[in-house]
Amino acid sequence: MIKITNLLKRYGDKVALNHLSLEIGPGTIFGLLGPNGAGKTTLISILNGLTQYTEGEVSVFGMPLDKNLVAIRKRCALIPQTLAFYENLTVIENLNFFGGIQNIEKAQLKKNISYAVETNRLSSMLHQRASTLSGGQKRRLNIAIGLLNDPDILFFDEPTVGIDPESRNEILETILSFKKANKTVVYTSHYMPEIEKICDEVAIINAGEIIKSGTMEQMLNNASASQVIFEIYETPLETLEMLSAQGSALSVVDSMHLLLDEKSSQAVAKTLDLLENAGIMVKNVRYGTTTLESLFINLTSKGRRDV
């Protein structure tokens, strides 16, 4: 659905995207992770035709982006981080405006507005001015506007910034529902648990390059990783801390995870003995990283050290 090959973007002498290649399949929720200045926004801007690239090839729906921008835009939607609508208009006036501006046929627009309102639970506030909505409701309106052209691809640029956990969960549920509608979602966020929760595939981008990508399973279970994770049945943290004090390479992640910073079979066997002696039941042992966040920090900090 989206195919990027050898994409180079320069701002003067500065390289923002360095020969980046990526493929995103249909119906995927794709997470784009990276520290500030990594190139995420540049990539999203290029995919939406807001920024021109220096070299490389980008195709969307099998069509070259630079030659089919208008057609591609009709099937895509960008949901910006800012609340890009009119605060002095009501919810329905905003929806009518952003729908009307896209020349969508009247009956189809009515249907699309209904879908957007229903998906984002806005029906009770249609005639309220946008300025009077809560932070979460405003975010939902921001998303609803992106659904008005019934897009096949949705680009989300940190859509949950600055809202309460309950509203965040509602928005994540909404995004998950797009998968059922076979829509492709490209999602950037700084909240790793969100990415872990909703994304099928992830790419970690740093200094304009993709340093790691794959499915969530591939990202977290990695035989080449230098760490081993022990998944255990829930145990009081005090007990685990005492245990950790006995083995210098063993650290406590939470009441159900321990991390061994060594992957030799002797060290793994020794840790298993330790856990058995302490009466702690082990569910699973795997190579890799406990969370996406630790992987992200590990990879991006390495990147920064290399730089």
Binding site: N48, G49, L50, V70, R73, K74, C76, A77, L78, P80, Q81, T82, L83, A84, F85, Y86, F98, I101, Q102, I145, N149
Partner: peptide, 14 residues
């Protein structure tokens, strides 16, 4: 312009 509404309109082929 500040709220990126113009940017959004641009992605809508305005």
């Amino acid at each position: 312009r500040k709220q990126n509404t113009l940017m959004r309109l641009s992605t809508m082929n305005v």
